[in-house]
């Protein structure tokens, strides 16, 4: 039982971070405003969690300008994808264990 809990990812345990990771895992890339709208989040809240994910090198950022407006796009890194998969697997395992 203890082993399974160890497989859970500390960074992804937070709900918003897991949500961000899941959106980025399902899409090629996503920009800040679209994420904000999809997750119904505030600027500050979303930025904080994005930063936490970036610190772990789970996501990468690319900044550009679209019609003179800054546009920030996020992508999941290979490291992030592995961590996300491991975390989801651990959650599934946890559910299985508790059903027994």
């Amino acid at each position: 039982m203890k082993n399974i809990f160890e497989n859970l990812d500390k960074t992804l345990e937070h709900r918003v971070r897991l949500q961000i990771a899941s959106v980025l895992a399902a899409n090629e890339s996503y920009d800040f405003n679209a994420l904000k709208e999809l997750l119904n989040s505030t600027d500050g809240n979303l930025a904080t969690h994005l930063k936490a994910l970036e610190r772990e090198k789970y996501i990468s950022i690319s900044k550009s300008f679209i019609e003179k407006k800054p546009n920030t796009r996020y992508k999941i890194t290979e490291r992030g994808r592995v961590a996300f998969k491991k975390h989801i697997d651990a959650m599934e395992e946890l559910i299985k264990q508790q059903r027994k």
Partner: peptide, 21 residues
């Protein structure tokens, strides 16, 4: 009720992934 939480969480994550694409 304890097993509800991770299960719901997983379901909502799946839904979110689907909704995002």
């Amino acid at each position: 009720m304890l097993n509800e939480t991770p299960q719901n969480e997983l379901a909502s994550i799946r839904k979110l992934m689907e909704r995002s694409v």
